[in-house]
Structures are given as structure tokens and as C-alpha cells.
Design a protein around this nucleic acid. Structure first.
Lengths: 379, 379
DNA sequence: TTATTTTTTTGGAACGTTCCCAAAACAAAA
DNA sequence: TTTTGTTTTGGGAACGTTCCAAAAAAATAA
């Protein structure tokens, strides 16, 4: 045992020599080991095959495989060998490598505030139709712990995860958010509210004309005392819709009773509360709600108070969400042209993606349409 | 001019010499040009900065930048320089390069049949909660022109676009699809229907016990003649729910009238038609619908025929979609534990992602809960 | 001070594609 | 046959990261 401890008396030179020896042995072992490992991995089933594996199996080069995969012409014989090799290896190209070198993802992102919002079905159909045509995938993102505001999603572009973004929101938007998004030097389109920011790249429904039509309709079937359930003050659409309400009254030359305008928050509960308030005030025969959800809430409140819709009150909504036609009585409401809006947004986005990098501002308003159902009665 | 045409008489050797000269000139020009271009691009604003640009500006190496970005320790001084450089260049890491080398995306994909399905809100909340904890992004995919079946999305894994997939569907599923997904050698969880395929990696609500509870409740409040609106035959949940209906009758020892069981398709229109049929048959005081949408349709039909709910008929649904509590009368229904289902699914998925590659089968059923509202009356 | 240990930094290889360009193969014409 | 023109192929650089081993710097002990 004694001799072992002699190491303490070694000179630096000896240590150095030892070190070099150890290094050599280590390198050697690693070499052998990695060779062995490599063989095992290639032989095993875990490794995903790369384009080079395909090339080897088909007895050609990676360039040729790449060309074949991208639809360029290769000789018949090569093509067959490649087909077989790809099949055999169950090869799938690695999108990350592809995107890295192309500097393009062929993906657009759609940012939604609540994925199961009732509006989205139609909008997404519109977007998908267009992006299908351009050969783009579209994926959806929502808020989470790290992405809490709309502008947080801009990073998806900076990080090369998507080529462009469509921001979808029909709840209230914040001005600073909208400005940040507007100024992003990348392909971006907003759908819905503009939070009062002008010249943002956005699409929306013509809120004002929708409400104007509602009031005109109610007037036409005899209503003169019309209550209005407004949306949350922070939402840009609220001002537009309320303006429509006022404008229609002016246009028709009838008096507006300010007590019959109550502010709400677009929720079912909010509509319910608003209607209760209105019933206390009284003196109206029709209610125009600024969205369907609150219209439903209002109907609930009326029912609860023993009134019957449309016998006692006519009610009109805004949006035309799916259930509006399911309930009893079915809700007369202003339909937003969702599919068209989605299409328009996607087309604008692709214009930016494929364009010259000139991200000019615009705000396009599409026309809504009044859907007449059974929640209103002639007086 | 004549001399120009003398070229025709040149020898091969001369041509060769010319060729070499041209090549040389070309190479030279390219060299100069690319140098110029490079400078211009770096100087311009278009180029996204890379980790190397940051390193240069901060007077350090790319490795150090990488280490800093990944939260490893760097010296105070270096850190400050890096912070400044990153800020100044507005640097964002390229995710594709990162994913390429890590062979991991830190993203899970959620495949939904209709993004705005009423169920999804709660489920997605559950999934998001869990994936947030694991530091994963979650993105949503839907059908499109190139991805038409659920199994088409498996490529997202092969192509390294996501680390795992959750398939969400409450419409009918196809057996072959389910089998393909089940056998995928990657992290996959299905939520909802299993199309009768056993031992698939899936989560669902306990459909049978939900309907059993419904019938028990109706029995408890005095109903003996209960009609049933069944779902589409192809859906696995249909059989389970219908079994529940039958089982409850056996258990309670009351007679079941087969004429009071009608098949529908879970749609609003389907529920409407089913109810009309039932009203023709008659002889029941309550209706158990196998989902909320058709329950609403049934209510519409009853209303249309001049009946009042719940005075004339008690109606119960299944799912507890949002609107069920909005309408009048509010719908008594079986609530699916959506958030819990989402959580469970995500947890299983991460177990697979972080696990040992052992993709064992399971089918977990979570318990539903009867939500008693106003669409039923004691008799 | 010098020797040793610990912390921090660095250059280069790797990841799996695409693209460029020279080389090769083939086809057609002389 | 040789020459010319066309199609197809293959080698190597590039894309922007991470990771590793080795080097350098800093901190500590002697």
C-alpha cells in the first residue's frame, strides 16, 4: 500500500506525463465507444433517417434527393430508386432544417383571444381557404403564461416560426398594443377592433351601418321607443355601434331617450343586468343589443320578469353567432360577414408576405347583413 | 469586322485557353461582387441579426452568447455587454436553427376538427395549464386541403414540427384512423371518442354513467316515461350513452318503450326532427337528449308545436356547453369535466414526451356531473 | 510570490436541409 | 468518329444554433 501514496512526491513533470497519457487513453476509448454507439444507433430503430440516408440507399447524392423531393426533374431510374428508399426508410424531411436554410416557414399564425369564440368558425374558414391556395399551413395561437398580450406574438415572426400573423379579437383592444402591432416591420393583419388607432392594417365589419339598419328595421315595423344595450366603453366597436344608433335616430327624425341607453359588457350576464335596468325605466317596445350574447341575456331577464319575447318586446342582436338561430324565439340579428372578413384578411396578409416589404396601412370595413328571424314583432 | 469572324478558325487549344480566362475573370468578378453585396446587406436594415452579430458587438464569442441566452452563468461585465448588444440589434434567436440542433421543438400540437367547437374552451384551458408548467408552447391545427384526416397530422411529428400531439374530436371517429394514430411511435394522446378501438391512448368522459345519472334524476322527480334522443350510430359515445340509458332502466326496474328512442345526429336540426317524431308517438313526460345541441333543437320543436318547457316536457342534455345556461329555460344537462380532461391528456402526453419511449395504451374515463337547472319539472 | 483549483470563454464540429456550379452523362448533329 | 448542346448529377458551402473539449482567466491556497 505504501507505494501508492508515493504519488504525493511526484514532480510536476511526471504529473504532466500522466495527464497526457490519460488524455490519450480517453481519446482512444471515446473513439472506440462512439464507433460502437454509432453503429448501434444506425442499426437501431430510433434514428430518424436524413436525406443522406435516402441518398445512400438509392445510390445517389443528397442534392438529387432534394431535387426530387422538390419536384424537379430526375431520371426515371433515379426516381424509382428514390421512391423505394423513401418508402423503406419512412423518410420525412426535417422542416426545421428546411426552414433554416430557406428562411421561410410556409406557415401563417392566427392569434386568437379565446379559441372557442363563437365567431371564429366562419373567419377561420375564410382564412384557411386562402392560405390553402397559397400552399401555406395555418396554425393557431392563444394567450399563455409567457404570451400575455397580442404584441408578445410578434416574436413568432422574429423567431422565424411563422411568415405572417393575423390577430383576431373582438373583445376590447388596447391602443398601445395596436400601435405596436401596427408598426411591426413584418406581415401582420388585424381583424376586428382597432381600438381607435387609425391607419392600422386591419379589417372589420362596418359596425355603424349594422346598427343603423337595425334601427331602420325596427322603425319600419312600427317601433318608436327603442332601447339600446351598448358594449364596453373600451372597445372601439362600441363607439361605432352607438354612433350608428344615434345616427339612425337623427336620420329618421325621431327623438332619442338617453335613459334607454345602458352600457353593458357584451356578456350574457351583462345583457341580463342591462335589461333589468331597462325594465325598471320602462317606456320602450324594442331593444337593440350591441351583440348577441347580451341580447340572449336580455331575453333571459325579460322571461324571468314574466314577459314574453317577441310579444312584449322585440329584441335584435349583433353578430349572428350560431345559437342565435337555435333558440326560441330565434334571434333577429346583424350578421357579420365572417367568411369574407377572413378571406380579406388572409389576402392582405399574403400580399404583405409576397410583396415588396411595403407595409402600408389600411382599414377595410365590410358590410353586415340584417338576419330577420322571430324575435321581433310588428306594433 | 472580318477579323471578328476569324474565331471560327480557332483551334481547340485556343478555345480552351479562352475558357480558362473567362472562368478566371468570372471568379474574380464574383468575388468582388459578393464582397460588395455582403457589405451592403450587413449595412442595410433587412438582415436579421444572428448570434454571431451579437457576439461581435459584445466583443465575445457565439458560444458565450448562447450560454447567456440559455441562462448559464457569464461574467457580470459580459452580461451587460450582451444585454446591450441584444437590445441594440433587436436580436431574436432563430427557432429553426435551435430546433434543428436540439432535435426538439418545445411545442405540442393540438388537432381539432372544428376550432370553434363549443366544448373546447375548457379542454384547452386544461391543456394550456399543464403545457405552461412544462414550458411548452401549444399550437392548434385544423383540417385543410392537405391534411384531411387525423392521421395526416402525424407528419407534424415526423417532420419535427411538434414534440407531441393531442387529438381532439367529439364527432364520430373512424376506426382505421384511430388505429393509425394509436400505433404512432411518438407522443400522442386522443381525447374523446375511441371509435370502439380498445387500448388506444385516450381520455374520455364516462358517457354511460352520465346518462345513468340523468335517468335516475328524472326518475327521482317522478318521470316514468322517458324518451331518448340518441346520437349518430358511427360515434363510439353513442353506444356508450345509449347503453347507459338502457342500464338505468334495468337498474330502476322500469319498462323501456323502444318507440321512445330515436336516433339523431347531435345537430340542432337533428334534435328538432327527433322531437317532432317523438311528439307524434307521444306518451312521455321527459326527454333525455344525448347532447346539448340536439336538446336545444328538441326544445325548439316543442315550442313550435305550442308546448312549454318544462311545464309540458322535462328536457335534459349532455355536455353542458356554454349556452345551456344562457337560454330560457336554462338546460339541465350532464357536464363533461372538460378542464380536467384537458389536464389529464396533457399530463399523459408529457409523460410520453419525457418518458422512455414506451407508449403504453390506456383509456381513462373521467366522471361527469349532472347540472340541475330549469328545464325539468317534478311530476 | 508561485502553484493549484475553479470559473469563464472560445473555436470548431454538428444538426439536415437548399442552392450553386462544375462535372458527367446523354443526345443530337457534324 | 468528333463536336456541340442539353439534361442530370454530385460536392461543398451556407443557414443559425448548441455542445464539447480545450484554453484562458480569475480566484484561491501555499
Amino acid at each position: 500500500m505504501r507505494e501508492l501514496f508515493e504519488i504525493e512526491r511526484l514532480k510536476i513533470r511526471d504529473l504532466l506525463r500522466l495527464y497526457v497519457t490519460i488524455c490519450l487513453v480517453k481519446t482512444f476509448l471515446k473513439c472506440v465507444f462512439s464507433l460502437f454507439l454509432n453503429g448501434a444507433e444506425k442499426g437501431g430503430t430510433k434514428m430518424k433517417p436524413s436525406i443522406i440516408d435516402v441518398a445512400k440507399l438509392a445510390n445517389t447524392s443528397k442534392s438529387t434527393v432534394s431535387r426530387y423531393l422538390n419536384g424537379k426533374s430526375v431520371k426515371k431510374k433515379t426516381e424509382e430508386a428514390l421512391k423505394k428508399a423513401i418508402e423503406e426508410l419512412n423518410y420525412h424531411p426535417n422542416m426545421n432544417a428546411r426552414r433554416l436554410v430557406l428562411n421561410r416557414t410556409q406557415v401563417i399564425g392566427i392569434v386568437v383571444d379565446d379559441i372557442s369564440n363563437n365567431f371564429y368558425s366562419g373567419i377561420l374558414k375564410g382564412i384557411k381557404d386562402v392560405s390553402d391556395n397559397y400552399g401555406y399551413d395555418c396554425v393557431f395561437y392563444t394567450w399563455n403564461k409567457t404570451r400575455k398580450k397580442e404584441s408578445d406574438f410578434i416574436n413568432l415572426i422574429y423567431e422565424d416560426q411563422v411568415d405572417g400573423l393575423i390577430f383576431l379579437s373582438f373583445a376590447k383592444r388596447y391602443q398601445t398594443e395596436v400601435e405596436l402591432i401596427r408598426d411591426a416591420p413584418f406581415a401582420v393583419v388585424m381583424l376586428g377592433d382597432n381600438a381607435g388607432v387609425e391607419d392600422v392594417r386591419s379589417i372589420d365589419v362596418d359596425n355603424q351601418s349594422g346598427v343603423v339598419e337595425t334601427v331602420r328595421y325596427l322603425y319600419r315595423i312600427g317601433h318608436r321607443n327603442i332601447a339600446y344595450i351598448a358594449g364596453p366603453e373600451a372597445a372601439g366597436a362600441t363607439a361605432e355601434r352607438t354612433n350608428g344608433f344615434k345616427k339612425a335616430f337623427e336620420e329618421l327624425g325621431i327623438e332619442m331617450n338617453p335613459d334607454l341607453i345602458v352600457t353593458s359588457d357584451w356578456s350574457n350576464q351583462g345583457g341580463y343586468t342591462a335589461m333589468k335596468k331597462l325594465l325598471e325605466v320602462g317606456g320602450f317596445s324594442a331593444v337593440a343589443a350591441s351583440n348577441d350574447e347580451s341580447a340572449l341575456g336580455a331575453m333571459g331577464a325579460a322571461h324571468e320578469e314574466g314577459y314574453s319575447i317577441p310579444k312584449d318586446f322585440s329584441i335584435v342582436g349583433f353578430d349572428d353567432i350560431q345559437i342565435s338561430s337555435w333558440i326560441y324565439p330565434s334571434l333577429t340579428t346583424v350578421r357579420q360577414p365572417f367568411t369574407e372578413m377572413g378571406k380579406k384578411a388572409a389576402e392582405e396578409l399574403f400580399k404583405q408576405i409576397n410583396g415588396d416589404g411595403n407595409f402600408g396601412a389600411f382599414r377595410t370595413l365590410l358590410s353586415p347583413k340584417l338576419m330577420i328571424r322571430n324575435s321581433c314583432l310588428k306594433v
